[in-house]
Design a binder for these strands. Structure first.
Lengths: 254, 254
DNA sequence: CCGGTCTACTGGTCAGACCAGTAGACTGTG
DNA sequence: CACAGTCTACTGGTCTGACCAGTAGACCGG
């Protein structure tokens, strides 16, 4: 009896639906490479005889696969559903969902962004190619040009700059996490900044900060790039973070 | 005509399917908090009159939502599909997929993990409460106790230790991203390590590394904790990263 | 060679049916 | 009164069969 309590614990059993079996098989075929990007699955009516299930079952399976970005159905295509090239779209979507739904405080988001973008700049400073450096210079120039076109335009150019840096790291996860957390932070805060009394002054100091970071990247000084990037994020957002949570951001400024 | 070429570029038009509209609406309701975890949607037959579509359309929408982890349908439940608490399951799944399809290299994953866990230790060193420090000590003790219970058990204790550190940062995103990337990295590599000729030696050095990191955390020395954490991850995983990609990890070791 | 028509398919949607499973009301019993 | 069993009115899972709009490719007339 002690055995039954301590060792022989059973897991709850859940019925396996037919459409899940279909998903599994197709998923496995794609992941094993038996079905490469660009290739086509049989039509729904053909799949339904191969799997020996009804069309609705096939369709539900295809819906799941489609929402995971593995296949795409196009009405009228006589070749059937097409296997899509691997993309990080699903990852980005689920990450955005989590960030938007789990009631994250601004402090957490800014802290995370400081973490990601700091390291991104550090890596970019050490790993960038000359072409990538040129892209960053161009992105900074875009920001300067957007100064007179209003805050919205400037903000777009700002995001583009950060994206260029992220791309230079060569790390997909940094790009995705960076993009997601940037979008969420901006969406939480843009109104307040746009209506700030001296938004032009804000833009100017922001531009200067970006220029300083880019200098460090140009010099290949990863540590300085990271420090400056974190510091400028802090300067930009700290005032919107409740004072009692602001201390959590300080350990990242060394 | 120059106008048409340079400015008036049209985007490809894609028909919006009915089930997508249904997904959008329910998704929005969940994200806005109008529908909280644990609450129930109307039954499929009820939804089908509310949205004025057929049942198959409703079902395909629910399949998508279910595959994204937002709702769960249970046959026979008279209350209808239930909204699920937010979980990182979908995120983990899509990241695992990408990794298995080799759209994510091990180098990227390890690099990202070094980044996250380095900063996590840095924050934990500065922000931890005495209780959290005690939890980490306990987790390390668990690892020591697991030394003789085989590699699988040791690995579990290892992951638990990292989770404790992540929790001490107080940052949800760090916890989630950390957990996901840890799981993915481990699942990619565990066989190779478990069958290593001297897995006990590996465990011993790993234990020592963790103890060193914990020392730094105890001292409140964030920078040292970060450096040690990154270094030990590098030492642990570098040999499995193809040599030509290993250089991308070095900028994080300063 | 080329623009239009035709045809045989595709996926998207709907209606209706059946089944197995569930929760909660109902029942008869002690 | 308490409680085990039955009943009932639902639920979601699946299948069938139908219709429509859209597409690709064959076919055709110029």
């Amino acid at each position: 009896m002690a055995n039954l309590d301590q060792q022989l614990r059973f897991a709850p059993v859940s019925p396996v639906r037919a459409y899940e079996r279909v998903v599994e098989q197709i998923e496995a075929a794609v992941l094993d490479g038996r079905l490469g990007p660009g290739e086509h699955l049989p039509s729904e009516r053909e799949l339904m005889v191969q799997f020996d299930v009804g069309r609705s079952t096939i369709r539900e399976a295809l819906r799941v696969l489609q929402s995971n970005g593995l296949v795409r159905s196009r009405p009228g295509d006589p070749r059937g559903p097409q296997v899509q090239p691997m993309s990080s779209g699903a990852l980005e979507k689920s990450m955005t969902m989590l960030a938007r739904a789990s009631a994250l405080s601004l402090a957490e988001l800014v802290q995370f962004r400081m973490l990601i973008e700091g390291s991104a700049n550090q890596l970019a400073a050490c790993l960038r190619t000359p072409e990538q450096l040129a892209e960053m210079e161009a992105a900074l120039e875009e920001m300067r040009a957007a100064l007179d076109e209003g805050f919205a335009e400037f903000s777009r150019a700002d995001l583009a700059f950060h994206e260029t840096v992220a791309k230079a790291t060569g790390n997909t996860l940094i790009q995705i996490c960076g993009a997601v957390v940037r979008d969420v932070v901006v969406s939480l805060i843009e109104d307040k900044i746009a209506h700030a009394p001296d938004s032009r002054a804000l833009m100017l100091t922001s531009l200067q900060h970006h220029a300083n970071v880019l200098d460090a990247v140009r010099d290949g000084d990863g540590e300085r790039a990271a420090r400056l990037a974190r510091q400028s994020l802090y300067d930009y957002y700290a005032e919107y973070v409740p004072e009692e949570q602001r201390a959590a951001l300080h350990p990242l400024l060394y």
